[in-house]
Design a protein around this nucleic acid. Structure first.
Lengths: 337, 337
DNA sequence: ATTTAGCATTCATAAATTAGAAGTGCTAAG
DNA sequence: CTTAGCACTTCTAATTTATGAATGCTAAAT
């Protein structure tokens, strides 16, 4: 079993390493523990045997192993209070966006990235249960029109298009009427199909140049499906600011992960709504990063958010912020009940 | 004056350096010029006196100076043909987005970034002359509503909001009617003002909880003004792929420029619609980059686009692509006349 | 008058050496 | 069980050395 003093030493080392990114020596921490450096060294040997600490080489200080971080996070980390300043910044966002939760979450996460210098990822799981609510067109000047498609959950897709000269506005209106009649209330991922088999055969009766017009609408609906996997990554280049990422190849490796479409799956895998911490290897991204994930309930839709940083990230600080955001978002959701 | 052979040597050096990023030696190019390396060296001395070439140190090969690039771009560069493959990719974009020019330009530029590994910046100058066309609300399930504001140029701003429980839907409808009556046709940058002085005083008559509702609309309109300075940067991290940017500090310097709000002004400064090349210092961004800028005419709005790369960027290739895009966009604009 | 071969010269890069500092592990005394 | 003391290990940074690439210049060749 691990003694109280060993716990204290581990805590000290983890927190010091998080702060400085430099291996921690026995000398450096013996004062705060009221014992000599030799004593600390003896304990460090035992902590290393328990695989909670590591060394880079014979005479370097100790750094936490992944198990060490895990133990710290599970057993030693004290709930960290947010600074008043940070709280105020978040409050400002909450107050200014009282009515639009989607926007609130977006801005909050951007702020988290800005404050912590970590990278955040917001995964809107949007169109999963969305149904088409209506299609609308607005004639603009010249022969341009604005087409809009709206879902029952309030997602909007719009396209600004130039009407080919051989297409009459009245034809467009008929097309829109047709779509509204036949396709409304269809789940968004089935719209393409329905367009293809139900609308396309009929549309040619109404519209001379139906090909062009049909394609335009078809495209617009496809956009919805793409947005379903809407990934917003904020502060990708924050990794450059971390001292452990001065090696340009490591940075490249991580930045490439952001392009990888597989990232979404890795991030999404979460199952409940708690705040979860994945350290190094556990993140399934790279051994060099940790990820803190959670889900928020926005207007009945699930939004996954993830904060990604170096393994020595300030877990407590991030958890505190996510908690605070969750609390407030929760409060805002309450209102509707 | 500069002799024909000197021009040939300069061309050779610039193109070789663009290809390899390594200083070019006399030996390396003497074969393609049918003379000995000593002759080339003699000429190189003269080109250096003319400030068209530089050396890193006594016995390094030569690299083009900024003047050298300038001379190359102005006098030596041959119009480069696009590869059939690249052309095809662009064609696919043009064909698939025939009706939505905004989307077309966005995707084209993304493709340019992907093909060239440079960074592109699209500056939509959107709301300059936009006027509010209409405000619309769509009631959703529970007590959520979707509010939309549309301009005469077809820009859309929408917000998904939860109705506070003490606000009736009928009150919202009245608010929207009021805005439509009083504010429609106002230039978008004057809307805030008009809301403040004409709508706000009246709204309290109709809506009990008017503060919340008023703020929500106020915000939505503000978004428009923000989008006026809509900057889209694609491929920021492409700089990491260039061999001259292995120094992490240089990369940081450039990435920071992208955050700098001043970047927009620097990029915008263009005056006519030609394709312009700014080399190194001329770019007013960093001595280490070059920028190729131009403006496209999209539905009567000006869109500035800029491609940013290392000074040894493939000027010819980029110009060819931008030309090709401009040609096609032009063709698509024609249709409406 | 050009061009070119030849060679000494310059400088960068990489490898090898050295010196110094940091921090450990172990031993033996407190 | 704690700690002082010291030998030991390894990193880092500074210095040296060697190698190689490419130059500028001189003098001969065309």
């Amino acid at each position: 079993m691990i003694t109280e003093r060993q716990r204290a030493i581990l805590k000290c080392i983890v927190e010091e390493y998080i702060k400085t990114a430099k291996p921690v020596s026995s000398n450096h921490i013996c004062n705060s523990l009221n014992c000599s450096s030799a004593t600390v060294r003896n304990e460090m040997v035992r902590l290393e045997e328990l695989k909670l600490l590591e060394k880079n080489h014979f005479a370097s200080g100790r750094i936490p192993s992944e198990d060490g971080y895990r133990y710290y996070v599970d057993n030693l980390m004290e709930p960290k209070e947010m600074t008043g300043e940070d709280m105020l910044k978040l409050q400002t966002i909450f107050r200014n966006n009282e009515l639009d939760l989607n926007d609130t979450i977006k801005r909050s996460i951007e702020l988290v990235s800005e404050i912590t210098n970590y990278t955040s990822i917001v995964l809107g799981n949007a169109s999963k249960d969305n149904r088409l609510k209506k299609v609308e067109i607005v004639p603009l000047e010249a022969n341009r029109i604005l087409t809009m498609a709206i879902t029952d959950k309030g997602f909007v897709e719009h396209k600004n298009m130039v009407l080919p000269e051989n297409v009459e506005m009245s034809e467009v209106v008929k097309t829109v009427e047709l779509i509204n009649k036949l396709v409304v209330n269809t789940p968004i991922n089935e719209v393409s199909e329905k367009l293809e088999y139900e609308v396309k055969p009929i549309i040619s009766k109404y519209v001379k140049q139906h090909e062009v017009l049909y394609n335009a609408f078809y495209d617009a609906f496809n956009e919805f499906t793409n947005k379903a996997n809407d990934v917003r990554v904020v502060g990708r280049t924050n990794f450059l600011k971390q001292p452990e990422f001065t090696n340009i190849d490591k940075v490249k490796e991580i930045l490439n992960k952001f392009e990888d479409s597989n990232l979404i799956n890795t991030i999404t895998a979460d199952d409940d709504n708690d705040i979860k911490i994945y350290i190094g290897e556990e993140s399934e991204i790279t051994d060099d990063v940790s990820v803190i994930k959670t889900k928020y309930d926005i207007n009945g839709e699930e939004v996954t958010i993830a904060i990604m940083g170096p393994k020595r990230m300030e877990y407590g600080k991030v958890v505190a912020m996510l908690d605070y955001i969750k609390e407030n978002i929760g409060g805002m959701n309450e209102k509707e009940k």
